[in-house]
Every structure is written in structure tokens, then in C-alpha cells.
Design a protein around this nucleic acid. Structure first.
Ligand code: MN
Ligand code: MN
Ligand code: MN
Ligand code: MN
Lengths: 217, 217
DNA sequence: AGTAATTTTTAGTCTTGTCTAAAAATATTT
DNA sequence: AAATATTTTTAGACAAGACTAAAAATTACT
């Protein structure tokens, strides 16, 4: 059995080291889950004895195949629940993360799969993050950062890297949502800001904002 | 903040003493939640200091108004999730309890209320149990046990007292479901069994079964 | 290479929730 | 009313998960 706390560590390792494949430092995990390095050491030892993680003292952790699958399942649940909350319960995309953090720990494979079917097998969550399938796989994101797009070209907003409520609310306020068509009008070298145009308006976005917007072209 | 464990104790006290209004014994709680009396004593002390329970040593526990409301909220969540699982995800009524035991602890008032709306404000869960409203109230059950019904009279199956999977599967096997019209044909004094008739068949049910079937007439 | 800074681990403590065994209180019999 | 049985509480221990402070290992710098 994988406990709630273990699941959170698995997720952290998964996210920090490319799907848990590369070694992650104790400190990085501690920072990510807002705990202390000593707590992390304790837990990764536990994950290692449970064969969920590969751990060599002082050399970081990565996930075993079993650990990777367990982590992907938690992420799958998290993202499916986010879809449910937004599409079925009419939550806004900036309100769902904390609730999904709780729902992702509910244990029932039948539940996940029935939820998946009920939602008609979504491939992405409300923030554009891909939803792993039952085997933990998903097709790599093909969207590119808006700063890589040539002036004059356009694309569809399909993924936001930062899905904190602060950033999402910035997007809400400025009427930017997933699925919007965005054209890059101008790049300003002085501060790396961009002038963009949507179907309804023209606006300037800062470098910080631009770094978090990904379009599919 | 009310922890998961506290919530389970609140529910137990609520269920064992008429909505937590009358005092419940330590042993009764221990048996109900499958733990030990000493653990119960510890927890009810904690509930008392948190003003959720009224506790006098050696004299059992009841719930304060605050405790009663907290318990009702957990039960509300449990039953709403059961409705969701059966009505939306197509689970069978004998499969939902354990999953609802997990979902009932998810903390978000917004979630409960949006779920309630999504389900179109159901008044009863898949086993006929009433769903408390936001204030913890529900109209008393007006259904009566099938053994109280006069021979020749009929009613609609609207509540099953035992909602263990074993019993529910017995009902499944015999094609008895909530909403079915059932007529009482005969009462057998020797073993208290009943001969009943549904729209599709005639059958004999034991006293044990009869005690758990409630009809509205 | 040798010292300093940083990271990681260990050692020991704490909280929550649980348990067993023993003591205390209450309830039931005789 | 005393003796016995049952229930409840207390005392002490344990596991999980987290923390602080100190020690050990690694990395960075001169
Ligand atoms: Mn999220
Ligand atoms: Mn997301
Ligand atoms: Mn139930
Ligand atoms: Mn129920």
C-alpha cells in the first residue's frame, strides 16, 4: 500500500526529474513539497525499501519502474479530477488545484477509469497538462513557448506552464483562456515583452507572462 | 480543523445516538469503528476539548451542536458522493460505500455544494438514506418496515436498512431494487418469513431480509 | 591540495492516532 | 450489602511523519 504522504513524494520526484528518470536532490524535493531535507531523507529511504525509488546516499533519488507508474497514476487522477471539476461542476481553472490535491489520493482503480470514461477520455487537464493513460504514458507536448514564435505568426493557447491561482487569475482578468487564438505582433528586446493580438483585443505581455504561455501552431 | 479520524468518530457518535443527541457508550463506538475502547476514550476527550462533543467520564458521549453539524456534513458528503458514483459513473449500489468513505473526507464546501447542484439536489442516496442539507437537516423517513405492512397491501421499496455489500448483492441476485413495487402476499408465523410479489415475480423472503426492507405506501 | 561553503544524513524529539495491560469505576448478581 | 462481572479510564508503548540541531560528506573556492 502506498500512503498519501508517499504519493506526494513520488509525485515530487516524478515532476522534478524528467518523469522520475533522472536523479533528484534531497533539497529540491524538500523545497518542492515545502518540508525539510531531513524529512525527505527519511521518506526516500522508505520509498527505496518499498522498491519505488532508486536511492544512493548523497546521490539523489530517481523512481523505479514501479514508482514511476505509481506517480503517473496519482498525476492521472489529479488531472482527471481537475477536468471533472471544471467541465462538470463549473469550477474555474484557478480553483481546482487544491481540491484535486485531495481527490488524487482516493484509492480505487475502478473509480479512476469510470471517471475517465464519464469525462470521455480527456487527453489534457484544464491547464493543458497531458493526462497519463492507465500505463502512465502520454504523447509528448508539441506546443511551443510563445517567445519562440516568429513575429506575425499565430497559434492556439494550449498549455500554461505556471498553473498557480495568481497566474491563472491574471489570465482571467485579461480574458486569456486555453483555446484562444493568439498572434505575435511584436517583440521588444529591451524587456523581452511581447505585443500579442487575440480575436478580441491587442495587448502587451511581460517576459514573465510570455514564459508561461505555450501555443500549438 | 477537523481531522479525518475525528470525522469518523463524529459520524459514529451521530449514527449510534439519535443524531448524536443521546449519549453513546465508549464500547459501542469502539465496536462500530473497529477500534479499542482506550482509543475511543482518547479521541472523545479530544472532541470534547474541541467543543464537538459533550463528555462526562464513565457516562458516554453526545455531540454538541457544532459536532452534530460537522457530522451531518460528513454524512451529507458521503451520500452525495454515493449518488454521484451510482448515477453518473454507473457504479452498482453495492460498490460505492468504500469509495464514499474516502471521498467524504475531502474538504471544500464549494465542492459539496456544486456537487449537490450537479446531481440536481438529490434527497436520498442509492440506499434510500436521506441526504442532510447544508444545515444538517432532513425530513424524517416516512417509510415503514415491510413486516408492519398488512397482507394484501403494497408499497414502493424506498430504503434498505442494511447497506452492506453482502445484503445488496442478495437483492441484486433476486432482482430487487429501490423503487420496485412490492406487495405482501403472506406472512408465515413459524419463521416470520414473508411471501411477496413484485411486478415480475413472486418470492419468499426470510425474516432477516424483511427486517431490512422499508416501503413507502 | 587545503579550506570554506553547501548539501545531505543522522540522532533525537514531537504529535497524532493506535494498541495492550492494569487500575478504577460502574453495573449486576447473589 | 457484598462479591463478581463488565465497562471505562489510565499508563505506557509504538509507528508514521515531521522537525531541529549536529555530524558527515560533497562541492566550490582560493
Ligand atoms: Mn493541479
Ligand atoms: Mn493541472
Ligand atoms: Mn455508505
Ligand atoms: Mn448509503
Amino acid at each position: 500500500m502506498v500512503t498519501l504522504s508517499e504519493e506526494n513524494y513520488l509525485k515530487a520526484i516524478y515532476h522534478l526529474g524528467k518523469q522520475g528518470k533522472e536523479a533528484v536532490s534531497t533539497n529540491a524535493i524538500a523545497e518542492h513539497i515545502e518540508s525539510k531535507a531531513s524529512s525527505v531523507t527519511d521518506m526516500i529511504k522508505k520509498l527505496a525499501t518499498k522498491n519505488l525509488a532508486n536511492y544512493i546516499k548523497y546521490q539523489g533519488v530517481s523512481l523505479t519502474e514501479e514508482g514511476r507508474l505509481a506517480a503517473a497514476l496519482v498525476i492521472r487522477k489529479h488531472r482527471l479530477w481537475e477536468v471533472f471539476l471544471v467541465n462538470k461542476l463549473n469550477f474555474s481553472w484557478d480553483e481546482v488545484h487544491d481540491i484535486a490535491e485531495q481527490l488524487e489520493h482516493v484509492k480505487s482503480l475502478q473509480l479512476v477509469n469510470k471517471l475517465d470514461a464519464f469525462l470521455e477520455y480527456p487527453t489534457h487537464d484544464p491547464h493543458g497538462d497531458p493526462i497519463p493513460d492507465k500505463d502512465g504514458n502520454y504523447s509528448p507536448i508539441k506546443s511551443i513557448n510563445i517567445l519562440e514564435i516568429d513575429t506575425g505568426k499565430e497559434g492556439t493557447l494550449s498549455f500554461v506552464k505556471d498553473s498557480s491561482d495568481v497566474f491563472l487569475r491574471y489570465l482571467n482578468k485579461n480574458n486569456l483562456a486555453l483555446g484562444d487564438t493568439i498572434k505575435v505582433l511584436d517583440f521588444e528586446p529591451f524587456d523581452n515583452s511581447l505585443t500579442i493580438e487575440t480575436t478580441t483585443k491587442k495587448m502587451i505581455i511581460s517576459k514573465e507572462v510570455a514564459q508561461n504561455l505555450y501555443l500549438s501552431v
